[in-house]
């Protein structure tokens, strides 16, 4: 069997140049996973409020520590990204912006909006 020229193989993720569309899509899922964990944290925060003053105070002590502030900042970026990209998805669902040019345009808009809103909110939260 002569194999002078290697046969083409299917494009594996490792050799695929990252494209905005694919990166934003994975980020949507990743931020969704993180926000699910954050939702559990939010529910836990509300539960400590019901459990009484001292338990709420220790929860609040963690949230005001460096780790807590970092998680909150990450959650804010995740929230604004997931929100912006989710609105982009809703536009697609209603049939708007489904051509390549507009997919890229709305993609960069999502990046700009979520970075701006995330940075502003994270700075205020500190």
């Amino acid at each position: 069997m002569t194999n002078s020229r290697p046969r083409p193989i299917s494009p594996h993720l490792q050799i695929y140049r990252p494209q905005l569309t694919a990166v934003l899509s994975s980020l949507h899922r990743l931020s969704g996973l993180f926000l699910s964990a954050a939702a559990v944290g939010l529910a836990g925060w509300v539960i400590t409020l019901g459990l009484g003053e001292s338990i709420f105070a220790s929860a609040q002590q963690f949230l005001s520590s460096g780790y807590g502030a970092g998680l909150i900042a990450l959650g804010l970026f995740g929230f604004f990204y997931h929100l912006a990209n989710g609105l982009r998805h809703l536009c697609w669902d209603w049939g708007y912006g489904y051509d390549i040019k507009n997919v890229y345009r709305s993609g960069w808009m999502v990046v700009a909006c979520s970075l701006t809103a995330g940075t502003a909110a994270a700075l205020i939260s500190l």
Binding site: L49, E53, F56, A57, Q60, L63, S64, L76, F79, L83, G86, L87, H89, L90, A121, I124, S125
Partner: peptide
Amino acid sequence: AIALTPFGLWFIFQMLLMPDFDY
């Protein structure tokens, strides 16, 4: 998703505007 947009934004703004986080 549609319901979470106003309620999520409402909560985040309430928290960012909260003067203090004690009980």
